[in-house]
Design a protein around this nucleic acid. Structure first.
Lengths: 342, 342
DNA sequence: GTTAGCACTCGACAGTTTTGAGTGCTAAAA
DNA sequence: TTTTAGCACTCAAAACTGTCGAGTGCTAAC
């Protein structure tokens, strides 16, 4: 990719920024007044014409102004955009919004997502801390009536899940004891990902008393471990998408796409960089072709642990959104680290 | 309200049903072929004209057919609609959809809402079992690390909630013991609604050791009791609203209205009858003026316990939706009753 | 009370014109 | 070689026009 002349850069940046601001195609005269360049509109037109030929700009139709192409956004994001600090206002909003959930990592991430979505008017996808390295720290069995109990599971990243479990037979003290034996020997300290139905069945079979009493409990443990993974992904502020006229009725389709969680998981896990920006058709899913995705990872105790992503129209305000995302992942990572290292 | 002639009833019913089916205004000729009446279209026009004058029908514009007015729908629902049994297919769908969540009342209601929404293509609001009569059955304190613990709360209607709680000081055995003392004497058996911040503070103050150690725990209990109430209301299938062309872009506003839960709570709690149908502007909220709400209560152990409501366009298929709602509340009530009486 | 007939209304649709913003090109100026 | 002014051209959006047809309301006759 050949380097652009300074004047072309100036024009491209102005087109992108103005288009982001107004949503209207930008014409040559408007551009003159925006940049304050001391040349005529004809000169600008020539430059724009070349930028179009090079693929950075495009025209909705012959007699309209120019609009950034996907390539144009990409160049802008990679080379032209200023690397700002987060706005004071945004910073305050974020801090105020998440402080109330400081103690509970899962709630914290959920809340962080809501705040960020509200701030940016985008949809926010976030994943609770987790990943392969999550180990099970503690399991507790709380009896509830004669034939059922609640299982409580705590992991190394501070996530807490509970689930009701019904037994076929009475929940005796002996069963409880044996359950805790199995838990201590086969589950505590193991990665959540390793808890499989088979390993649990084997464990249940090794028990002194009736193994069938133990099965529902073991099954519940499995399901709980599984749900750790499944419920990691969270979606917030998806109705913000309706406020962007860029999408038009397409907002509905996008909304429904986001509410099917599976593809979201794929999108989030496809990200490798600490901060990744995926523009328009660079997305793997057709449903996102008019959207940009900004994903940043956060780390807990120095390890990548989850990420927070924003989904909005390609015409989003990258320059102000990116610092917010960076700041949020940073602070969230620190807060969770602190919460679990007590 | 004067009684309508048989022929007027026939015509009104036909207009309502046809309009529900097609969404198009119904004209005089069309009505003839629908009802099979042996009079001319002019006669039908005269009748329709009178029905319009009486307020049961209205015209979108001079040269269009007639559409039921709100009063027309009301008359139809109260007097003309047949009281059908639930469709075999719907019954099966409901049973299949909710069977997997039989053990956990809260999940069951959530799932029931999803199924009903899917079946009817409406949004479904439901409230988990609860109300004034809910008493706290059990509280468990599960230590998690040195300075925090998870509180688990179980109520008489089978709802289970947990919450992480951080302490300022170390969680000693003594604190645990004292906590359980307070719980046993002041909390268990009490209605959840009675748990107030003040009563908890008093309880914390009565303790032997440092009352400040107990405060966060008591605060968490309060919050948990409060959240029992707050989290009762659930919304499912709200994106179905987008599929109704009746709403047009208004669907977005309605969607956003529903996602603010507060007004929903008001709508649901305003209902007194076992089965209530609120049509169009009868709703208290402007945002629902083009919608109808059908709410049915379910009862657990013979007591009213919660309700399930549907929200859809005024032009909804009352005749098939109502039996589904009735059936669902009935079966859900029985399932929960069975689950908690074990 | 019912019917046939007819004038009338009005939205939907399709085609036409007008408007104005914005471009591309060319020839002259710098 | 770069820049500029001027002008013809393009095209979407908006305003306007005329036609069509479904459906009504009214009247006079049955």
């Amino acid at each position: 990719m050949t380097e652009l002349s300074e004047r072309k850069k100036l024009i491209l940046a102005a087109v992108v920024e103005q288009y982001i601001k107004t949503g209207e195609p930008v014409g040559s005269k408007e551009l003159l007044s925006l940049t304050g360049m001391s040349v005529s509109s004809a000169t600008v037109r020539n430059e724009m014409s070349e930028l179009s030929a090079m693929g950075y700009l495009e025209q909705p139709h012959t007699s309209a102004g120019r609009v950034p192409s996907q390539k144009g956004y990409r160049y802008y994001v990679d080379n032209l955009m200023k690397d700002r600090e987060i706005d004071e206002l945004n910073r305050r909003m974020i801090e105020a919004g998440i402080s109330s959930a400081a103690g509970d990592p899962e709630k914290l991430i959920a809340q962080a997502g809501e705040v960020l979505a509200e701030l940016t008017k985008c949809a926010c996808v976030s994943t609770a801390p987790g990943g392969d390295a999550v180990i099970i720290r503690k399991i507790e069995l709380v009896p509830v009536g004669l034939h059922s109990a609640m299982l409580v599971l705590l992991t190394s990243n501070g996530i807490l899940k509970s689930r009701l479990c019904r037994l076929d037979c009475e929940l005796t003290a002996k069963i409880c004891e044996e359950f805790y034996n199995i838990v201590d020997s086969c589950i505590i300290g193991k990665p959540a990902a390793d808890i499989s139905v088979v390993s649990m069945q084997t464990a249940a079979a090794s028990v002194d008393s009736d193994p069938f009493a133990m099965l529902p409990l073991m099954a519940a443990v499995c399901e709980l471990a599984r749900s750790m993974e499944d419920s990691r992904i969270m979606l917030g502020g998806s109705s913000n998408l309706f406020s962007h006229k860029d999408y038009g009725v397409g907002a509905i389709e996008l909304f429904e796409f986001l509410n099917k969680r599976e593809p979201l998981t794929a999108v989030m896990s496809g990200v490798k960089e600490p901060l990744d920006i995926i523009i328009g058709k660079e997305n793997l899913y057709r449903q996102l072709e008019n959207s940009s995705v900004i994903v940043a990872k956060y780390s807990v105790s120095g390890k990548d642990s989850g990420s927070i992503g924003l989904i909005g129209p390609t015409r989003m305000d990258y320059e102000s959104i990116i610092p917010s995302v960076k700041y949020l992942t940073d602070i969230v990572g620190r807060m969770i680290t602190q919460a679990i290292e007590e």
